[in-house]
Design a protein around this nucleic acid. Structure first.
Lengths: 325, 325
DNA sequence: TCATTATGTGTAACCGGTACCACATAGAAC
DNA sequence: GTTCTATGTGGTACCGGTTACACATAATGA
């Protein structure tokens, strides 16, 4: 592969001129532009990003840290981030942390060695120290890491309130709330939103804490349905809602006539279930895209206009609730 | 950040010695090891992979090109690849091609500039020229690119045969085959497997060509169900099977008592549907992991023992077919 | 007319590693 | 005693870019 000196020689100019040409920096005559362009063409020259990175100490890699890309919540985020990154000339490095702090720290370290320009982090365990010390731009998605780190998420509390309200409007009076893990920001927020909705109303509520896992959700809900009479479920993710649907099916309980279910996230999964899952949709693409844009701004030294952004959620009424049937 | 010269100075040795120490190459005295290790520790030194890459013209980046990470087939692959890559010290760059040739070529170009060590490609359009000319290791997943490029996939023909056979065994006699796009390797193979199974049997078959998209599948199946009497569907992906389930539900056709459905892929989606989707499972993790291992072998200059690997598929019987009900 | 500024280009140090080569020493082999 | 080999270390060119600085020349302003 040709390098910049080959191009300079072929064009009959110095490497500095070629470099200026490539970066649109400083003065270059039209004539120089012409001959360089021709040389670049002839040699099929492509500048080495590695060499450029070494010299400028900058790079065009963005590290994306997610708990597990297999969770349907994350591919949509990743997709958005990748789209924006591509548009701005960045590439995305995929990291699965498995919610494992050590793995996460390790990743950050490794990627620093590789001069990543910044991180988008969709996982965290309050152990913010590992991030705030870094002199690399970071944007947090979904879960807040630290007040100093820009943060983008859905307005989970309001979203959960809307979703629960929908169950209420559809006539549910015995509601099971499948809240997410205690201490996990978004899960806590959604639970708060659920409470906002039922508070003061004459509603029987059952609360269970359930991880964002299909199997566990199915098992837990099966048990609850056997013991209590429930006519509505607010699940704090689509995956756990899917588990609840399965449990209802096994128990011979018809959805939505006997039991109504509202999920959360608005992933593909929700739309592909039968019956279609009514869900509180996060605008995942918008969140991802916005995070990517913010990160790139930070990387390129621009000021952020907003430090924390809450995106409104939208209720997608489908067939697991009666108004959608 | 400290560099290798700082370490050398602190340890009172030359950079060459430090470099040898870091790479476990050549002779180093125990004493030298000790002082260098100490200096590394003190300075919290981390070698720059960028500089190393520039010098060695190698890197530890693997480019993963998929059509769309949002398709539930790919996250599981990506996950496996990432796991293996991490274990061997590589990092994965995520690229969504959208089946767009230009985008794909562009990606390859960009990543070459960034010195990726190799590609794992899960997308292709027979336009293999863009890959075979590259002097970078490539491994193809799922879809064959060219005979010169190592290829790993499920034994789709046999998998489809097993899946179809299962419908036959469960008593279906009017079977709809939702084949994937014509000309797409795995889709053609699966269709061949379907034919292998029904050939010579006294079965009515209906064939439709259906892209791997939920909505399209739902619409197409709705139409077929309205016009013909079908008691079994072989879908060549879980996503399209999910679409078929939805169509049956809308038409008031009960699964599996009136209509049995077999999907293909064995993604999470299949297990999360209600009723659970009987599906021909690809061992996605194994495929991804194997592809990653093969690629790393190639990158590191080792010989490949196998050039093409077909992984057997496994039938997962769940509740959309009667033997699983 | 002379100083100043805008325009244009080249030289070479630098980013942080790698690795070739020279060189030193010590023990083994002859 | 000399040669050979194994062991250990250092100097420095090189990878392919960027950019500070020096140095031109032409145009502008006082």
């Amino acid at each position: 592969m040709a390098n910049i000196r080959d191009v300079a020689k072929a064009a009959g100019v110095s490497v500095a001129t070629v470099s200026r040409y490539l970066n649109n920096k400083g003065y270059i005559s039209e004539e120089a532009k012409r001959v360089i362009a021709q040389a670049v063409e002839e040699l099929n020259y492509q500048p080495s990003m590695i060499a450029r990175s070494l010299s400028t100490k900058q790079s065009t890699f963005i590290g994306l840290i997610v708990p597990d890309i297999v969770n349907p919540f994350f591919p949509e985020l990743a997709r958005a981030i990748e789209d924006i990154a591509l548009a701005y000339g960045y590439t995305v490095i995929l990291c699965n942390s498995d919610e494992d702090l050590e793995k996460e720290i390790n990743y950050v370290k490794t990627l620093q060695q590789k001069y990543v320009a910044g991180f988008i982090v969709a996982t965290s365990h309050a152990e913010a120290e590992h991030y705030i010390g870094l002199d690399i731009p970071i944007v947090a998605i979904d879960r807040r890491i630290h007040s100093s780190i820009p943060y983008i998420a859905t307005d989970n509390r309001e979203g959960a309130r809307i979703g629960t309200e929908h169950l209420l409007d559809s006539g549910c009076t015995n509601i099971l709330c499948m809240r997410g893990p205690l201490g996990l920001g978004p899960a806590d927020d959604r639970f708060a939103g659920f409470n906002d909705a039922v508070m003061g109303k004459n509603i029987n509520t059952h609360i269970i804490e359930c991880p964002f896992q299909f199997d566990v959700a199915e098992t837990m809900v099966k048990k609850v349905l056997a013991e209590a009479s429930i006519d509505g479920i607010f699940a704090s993710s689509d995956v756990t809602a899917a588990g609840a649907m399965k449990a209802a099916y096994s128990a011979g309980i018809h959805v939505p006539s006997q039991l109504q279910i509202v999920g959360y996230d608005g992933t593909m999964l929700a739309s592909q279930l039968t019956p279609g899952l009514t869900t509180v949709a996060q605008d995942l693409y918008r969140i991802g895209a916005m995070a990517a844009r913010m990160l790139i701004k930070l990387i390129e030294g621009q000021e952020l206009t907003e430090h924390e952004v809450l995106i409104p959620a939208e209720l997608l009424i489908r067939q697991t609730t009666r108004s959608g049937a």
